[in-house]
Design a protein around this nucleic acid. Sequence first.
DNA 1: GAATTGTTTAATAAGCCTATTAAAAACGCA
DNA 2: TGCGTTTTTAATAGGCTTATTAAACAATTC
Lengths: 209, 209
Amino acid sequence: MKEENSIHKNTMELTIFKAAEELFVEKGYNGTSTTEIAAKAGCNQALVHYYYRTKANLFNIILKSKINYMISIFNYMDNRDLSFIENLTIAIEMHFDALVKDKRLPMFVFNEVRNNSELVDVVRDVFNSNVSVMFRKLEIVLQEEIKAKRIRKVSAFDLVVTISSLNMFVFLAFPVIDYILNLDEKGVNDLIQERKKDIVRTVINSLRP
Amino acid sequence: MKEENSIHKNTMELTIFKAAEELFVEKGYNGTSTTEIAAKAGCNQALVHYYYRTKANLFNIILKSKINYMISIFNYMDNRDLSFIENLTIAIEMHFDALVKDKRLPMFVFNEVRNNSELVDVVRDVFNSNVSVMFRKLEIVLQEEIKAKRIRKVSAFDLVVTISSLNMFVFLAFPVIDYILNLDEKGVNDLIQERKKDIVRTVINSLRP
DNA sequence: GAATTGTTTAATAAGCCTATTAAAAACGCA
DNA sequence: TGCGTTTTTAATAGGCTTATTAAACAATTC
């Protein structure tokens, strides 16, 4: 039996984890069976339970890491060599780019969180340990900018929610938009990059005093 | 056996439909069983199949109507007595208010659409019959405003996506935000109304030339 | 190389889920 | 009241799912 919290040393243990990760993110908890995970990992179904005991346990490990990751990808860094607008533009673009690499992430997290009240504490822990610090730093920078009349009055909360809304929605609504516009892969990528530009423009423009 | 496309005359048939609607929207297709639907409707499980044949069939009827409804709630009306900004503000607020009344709607639709490629045609039909007309009308109004230098250059697509992003995200991310802030019902409602104001401010401000 | 430990499999129990079938109950009308 | 139709139920087949168990297999150690 494996140690709790150990690094995955065993090949098959890790293979199972990655197979589960892909399937859960793609099809959700209810849409994925341990049989399917085993098939994808190329092993017997009992092995999934040998390493992770229950489906719910395996799922929770994965969901928690995804929540952590998703919350971490928005990060305003106050580089003093650059203006606030330049720093903010970088933060927006990096956030967007992280989502491009992981298109299904927001859908997965939001969807699975909604009926899993057990996760209250996880979400709040992540928030308290990372996000709230970033919020406070951003709030200070915003106050300066507002006082100097370089931007309109706005809270860190509203600004971050606005940016998250615009960036994440692209990937949340993706299947629908995809259906409507019926684009090939290049068309989709072009659209996404156009959208990124408009989001930056929209956010920056909306901050003018 | 009931007529196809008939109005629900039978009490139990309608009760089952409404129970299914609530459960599917709340817990998704995979998270809901016909047994559960029957229990909620207060009837035998076989009756669900008697009226709707299969679970998938019942689900598709509901999902289609929800897609239709969701797409219909954003509607820019060009009232000539009002300025463009006033008309747009009304459209944003009405869209937001419709979502307040149906908080789980966007999550349900986006989530279920993602793994249901059978819905390509449904989505495209709805789009072609309603949305594209609205888009064209909005595009004309926008061109006027841009030419008159009353707003910056922006496409109808980007504007509608921006508004949808901001409005829908509130409800998509709701459980997460709820967990983080730990508010009571009044606190939640206040937050939502504050958010609505900021969204209008953000969109309108972002359009300035 | 025998024993101990760890990995993997086959088999299977127990439960739930969908869908069907046949019978019972309720209804409507002649 | 009695007959035909519609509505509703009980029973159940068959499939899939999770989780466990015992045995086989592989690896490591002494």
